[in-house]
Design a protein around this nucleic acid. Sequence first.
DNA 1: TAGTGGTCTAGACCACCCT
DNA 2: GGGTGGTCTAGACCACTAA
Lengths: 246, 246
Amino acid sequence: MGSTTRRGVARPAVPPAEPKYRQLRTALADALDAEFSVGQVLPDERTLAARFGVARATLRQALDQLELDGRLQRRRGVGTTVAPPRVGVDVSPARQAWPGAADDPWTVTGCALLPAGPAVATALAVPRGTQLPTISRTLVADGQPVATERLYALPSPRPADGPPDAAELLAALRRQPLEGQDRAVELGSADAEQSASLDRLPGAPVLLVTTRYSTAGRVAALSLATYRADTCRLTFGDQRLALTTG
Amino acid sequence: MGSTTRRGVARPAVPPAEPKYRQLRTALADALDAEFSVGQVLPDERTLAARFGVARATLRQALDQLELDGRLQRRRGVGTTVAPPRVGVDVSPARQAWPGAADDPWTVTGCALLPAGPAVATALAVPRGTQLPTISRTLVADGQPVATERLYALPSPRPADGPPDAAELLAALRRQPLEGQDRAVELGSADAEQSASLDRLPGAPVLLVTTRYSTAGRVAALSLATYRADTCRLTFGDQRLALTTG
DNA sequence: TAGTGGTCTAGACCACCCT
DNA sequence: GGGTGGTCTAGACCACTAA
């Protein structure tokens, strides 16, 4: 073929060959910084794709990444807007407390007996499928739902005492001394139920926070919370610092 | 049109109409649980797509989500394999210490003077573009790189003292009393440099951990660490607990 | 009803890894 | 060279929102 590659176009050296959607992402990110303000709506995808001379699918790849980075917000039937900075949500385990304390910002949305799935069963050291009292809660910040949580407690020593009551369940937990608490954060994707609560589509990226509350040497409660990854930032604060977030 | 919708197919009620890639995701997840073990390679995408009767792009949407959930691992030119459970990485700010302490598992990979970007400048309260001494480090777990970090320090009081030295820089930080430290976690996508260190493609999802080290009432150092979101789970442990992770 | 983002298709070619 | 996942296209239709 001689000294040509790719449809006969001469190449003096080996370029890094950054994919098109990546260059697009950069171009859009720069434009966002320079010419757009928070809340402003972008041109629609078909127009943008035509303007940049790419297929709509390619443009969407670039938009997907910008959305992952929290820079854009897309709503079906409405359009794409420049996203505001992420909301900081304090999830520091430093402040050791049972859920439902006085200053707890979560709102109870439901309460039920549910069977323990594999992960919950091992964490609470109960047989798989055990019926556990659970509480569903949501967290709202700036008028938007940012997280949903399912709290699993150990089964009551006196079972079959009717449907569980959320306030009672939380009170029962608070009566025990909280010995310790630890957290883990990982990436996940919202299931149907979670995405409905969070006003997102199924599969939307979420930050999954697992909290184990322990008392008397064993895990007494387990919280599985999912935070909207596009709109919030989890902060693990330090009481000795009082600085505004950059 | 009478009582029909969608190409004349009668519908008794309004089904939730879950998208095809979502049903595929569920089917694949179930198959993964039932018939596959960690490390096993899946059939290639073209075969899978044909087997499920969908276009390859649709199948890939399902695989994308499973990869986001850490259940699959895809490598170009090789294939798709069942991913091992995520690695837990301790990032608890409870253990207050400057980076580079004796038990610090990070490895220094570079050291340079770099201008402060917007985010770094505001966090460290220096003018934008200020030349700051920086250290690049990586974290390896189970033989795989799981995170890269850039540590920004305040400029030396005696500037222009030649290129910075990593060991010296860390020692200088340790000489100061560490007053406080706080962290934030958010979702991001890897840039070209980060993705190269992490053995991933650009744009891969990462967990971005921002740590501020403060002394004498101000932030003295800032760490921006990116963790592979597909392979690791950040843990904020509690010394009072010694339980194996579920 | 018009316009938006979301889903889906059928194909092509590229970059990379292995043998 | 042959097979894998990654990128890209040009089009179609669907689901949702708002005028």
